[in-house]
Nucleic acid binder design. Structure first.
Lengths: 144, 144
DNA sequence: CAGGATTAAATCGTGCACAAAGGAATATAT
DNA sequence: ATATATTCCTTTGTGCACGATTTAATCCTG
């Protein structure tokens, strides 16, 4: 007899990811961004300056074919600006606009809200984060 | 300064889910199904008989607007059959075809392959599964 | 039994996510 | 210097995922 979804480790990740995005939804709606857009903005907020599409992709583990349309939507919302690097015109530099930078303050309370929704203490969450990230890294290393 | 994606718990789930789907991809390609389709088939394989769309949705945590087109693709691949329940014609009963049932044997080795790719022992994986699923359940309970 | 409320699926529109293919700029190797 | 290869991003096509709406069948209350 095959395993039921609820008995699979992969499904626990799959299910928790969806539940997490639902938990973020009302908070992100106030900012007018989606969850993947929030991750991209977080990468830019925690960076010193502009990032390339590839640099963002490394941080959020998405490739350019996913990021290009997402970044165009962020550009249409006037949260980022895209421009070719004059030193190497293959690269597109993504920079926060004033609106995009200003949004960081409005997002500052989000991690606290999410922590509360999980009902866990921060040490447990950090341990789980490290364990889950280690599985992700191991899977990517094995596959590559 | 905002948290970088790699420091967020949510991102570890997000990233691990994608890495997991990449790990499954070559295995599922041999069966000709996608990862969500595999979850739906697993629900049917571990069930005594046909399930309704809603019943499948409870197990995989997806609603009918996602499942209907997915099930139509499984039907087009002749892995499942859909029919209205004569007792209550609002409900659609989803049953495995012979091909669909036969696929269970060809999928039997997959959990073992995935376990190996994670590099973890089965006890650790089961503990993590339970912890992650508990977070998912808590998030859903808090939101509802 | 009539009429409104409820439930189950399906439909529609938007936004990820990725493979495959393509094009432009740069790097390298003759 | 010219050809070749590589890098970076974009485009295209398929398949989730979900909110909002619609349709059809059943249930409930009087």
């Amino acid at each position: 007899m095959a395993l039921a979804p609820s008995d699979m480790f992969c499904f626990s990740l799959y299910s928790a990811t969806h539940a997490m995005q639902q938990a973020y939804r009302p908070l992100l709606e106030e900012l007018g961004v989606t969850y993947p857009q929030y991750l991209v903005l977080s990468a830019l907020w925690s960076s010193d300056g502009p990032l390339t599409v590839g640099g963002i992709g490394q941080q959020v583990q998405l490739d350019s074919s996913t990021l290009t349309p997402l970044l165009k939507r962020l550009e249409a919302a006037e949260l980022v600006e895209r421009s070719r690097d004059p030193k190497d015109e293959r690269q597109v530099r993504v920079a926060l606009t004033e609106n995009g930078s200003a949004l960081e303050a409005k997002a500052a309370h989000i991690p606290e809200c999410i922590l509360e929704k999980t009902g866990l203490d921060i040490e447990t969450l950090q341990r789980l984060r490290a364990e889950v990230l280690a599985v992700a890294d191991k899977l990517r290393a094995t596959g590559a």
